[in-house]
Write a protein that binds this DNA or RNA. Structure first.
Length: 205
DNA sequence: CACATGATCGCCT
DNA sequence: GGCGATCATGTGG
């Protein structure tokens, strides 16, 4: 249960001329945020150093009207509470008794939508599949439920940076692992960088 | 390549 | 009490 980041993900946001994505970005429509998070860097500060990875796969979860979302039908429990906060907060949950999944909350306060971060690429030279899946992504960056609810903006230890570069080829398709969600299971709310080797379940391209 | 399974436990009914 | 926004490993073709 490492709660610390993989040393191979060490990087320097300033050296790469990165800027934090502003609050306004996260207040936009959730599917748009999911699409445009591709290419941004999820970063974690640990003992004074930054560790990060480039986001290459995301999924949008559309709140009360989306059967696949934890906040479906207005469900509001302690676990899901972070989803009701303003865009730019983090929502982390624990599944299958062993994995954590990280989400970026979107839209205004009281509108419980979010973007699941499914896969990322570490800095040059890191193993291609180190963060190829939501559970692996959290494990590699040391993100656990202890971070659920924190603000990504401001002075926290988890932030999202961007150098303004988007993937050459962004593709969309149905979300993974939500066969129980009725017609929502077909909604094309999964976005990924078609050129990335880190994308999970590559077959469906 | 396509399933199938086990691990393991918080969450919600 | 049942199941999940997963993953690694194993089997068979």
């Amino acid at each position: 249960m490492a709660h610390f980041p993989d040393a191979r993900l060490l990087f320097d946001p300033e050296a790469h001329a990165m800027k934090e994505l502003p609050r306004a970005f996260f207040l936009q429509a959730t599917a748009s945020v999911a699409r445009h998070l591709l290419g941004a860097w999820l970063a974690r500060r640990f003992e004074g150093n930054w560790y990060g990875a480039r986001i290459v796969e995301t999924e949008a979860y559309l709140g009360v009207r989306d059967r696949a979302a934890h906040s479906w039908n207005g469900r509001r429990t302690a676990r899901v509470e972070p989803m009701f906060r303003a865009g730019g907060h983090l929502y982390v949950y624990f599944v299958y008794g062993m994995h954590h999944c990280a989400n970026v909350v979107t839209r205004r306060e009281g509108c419980p939508e979010a973007v699941l971060l499914r896969a990322a690429e570490g800095p040059e030279g890191t193993p291609p599949k180190l963060l190829s899946g939501p559970g692996k992504l959290c494990a590699a960056l040391g993100i656990s439920s202890a971070f659920s609810g924190v603000d990504l903006l401001g002075k926290g230890d988890v932030r999202i940076f961007s150098n303004g570069r988007a993937p050459r080829h962004t593709k969309a398709g149905p979300r993974i692992g939500i066969d129980y969600a009725g017609e929502a299971r077909e909604w094309p709310l999964r976005f990924y960088d078609a050129d990335s080797p880190a994308v999970s379940r590559r077959s469906g391209a």
